[in-house]
Design a protein around this nucleic acid. Structure first.
Lengths: 205, 205
DNA sequence: GCAAGCCTCCCCTTTTTCCATGATTTTGAG
DNA sequence: CTCAAAATCATGGAAAAAGGGGAGGCTTGC
């Protein structure tokens, strides 16, 4: 029985590229594609593929969040993350949210096919480059920050000073200071500049 | 006579997607593709396409720099920028370096064909979304910063304080302070946090 | 119940940044 | 060469952040 594939990616040429690459594979059935999160969900409501190739960057929603939602509603669908970025934070989050694989958009035909076959067999597939990234950065985890810390972080990035943040969040400046210190500590950095740089890299702001 | 097309993009599925989309166009001749800047230049040394689709992000060199080089050596080649990002800074730099068009990777088949036809006719083609971005942000230019300011900016982002930066660059701390102030002023921000956030958005760090 | 984690608040000292102003030397493009 | 921009250095004061404490109330899960 053919493996049913669906793809969600807002880049039409990527969709077309993968379709073209998989066309010659006999045991793969192309179900179609969606260009945004909403229409992807709408499709899944009607029918479910075996494997879903899911882009990290969608216009209406991040693929990372979407991955989580889909896995909650349709746990049997195997998801392979798809992105241009060999960025450890994305890969990590994607896997945490239930993805079975991750391939970069510079993948070859063979790599895509392998990825699909691997996840179907219950294995996890990571693009060779992606897995190298994972190994390299395995001790550079994204810090776990709390809701409040994230709010403070974002306001710091906006250029607000402690007093302004305090007024905006209806808390004391000393509290803001506490959150700030714990952010510095969790990110293991010495000052705000370094904090914001890392936060930007992790796509937290 | 058919229009000769060559594409430089490290994402194989994008190459394959475009190839598949252009296959049915009779007046387009597919010359092939390169996956990095070096092999692209090597190909151009042998033969020249009429239109070159050039990715912004290449493993060995930025498409923006490559665009400039190619236009200097082969001014007759028409270049169309290609990227996933609808980011005004990229588009602007690409056009400044001699590109004739810019399309996003979510472009449809029709859009690609239009882009190619437009630049062949001597016109400039911008993806509708890209041109909207250009108009929206025309007054939100990326600040022009000097070599030294950029160095200081990057060291600030690393978390270094003025004294450390001064030692690293063999200048006085007051000089670092001056550069720092001019950065704040050029970016029109109030503090370092905001500066670093913008710098990250503009891909300066 | 109770521990753990989160959010809240306060104090103190030191360090660093922010801002204004002015001036000299170096560099680079025309 | 020449002029403008860039890079260099300085003074000094106000504001903000960093770093170190300590502490109470609040959910949440075991």
């Amino acid at each position: 029985m053919a493996i049913k594939i669906f793809i969600a990616d807002d880049h039409y040429m990527v969709v077309e590229g993968i379709r073209s690459m998989l066309l010659q594979e006999k045991n793969i059935e192309w179900m179609g594609h969606a260009m945004n999160a909403a229409s992807c969900m709408a499709f899944l409501y009607q029918q479910q593929p075996d494997v879903l190739l899911l882009d990290i960057n969608m216009p209406d929603k991040s693929g990372i969040d979407l991955c989580k939602e889909i896995k909650e509603k349709y746990p049997e669908i195997l998801i392979i993350g798809l992105s241009s970025f060999n960025q450890q934070s994305y890969i990590q989050k994607m896997m945490q949210n239930g993805a079975s694989g991750y391939v970069l958009k510079n993948a070859s035909r063979e790599e895509i096919v392998s990825a699909i076959e691997s996840v179907i067999n219950g294995d996890t597939f990571l693009s060779s480059e992606a897995s190298v990234t994972m190994r390299e950065n395995k001790d550079a985890q994204i810090p776990v920050i709390t809701r409040r810390e994230k709010e403070v972080l974002q306001l710091i990035a906006e250029g607000l000073i402690n007093k302004e943040i305090a007024e905006k969040l209806f808390i004391s400046t000393t509290t803001v200071d506490t959150h700030r210190n714990s952010l510095l500590s969790k990110f293991d950095v010495k000052n705000t500049a370094n904090l914001i740089k890392l936060a930007a890299q992790y796509n937290l702001i």
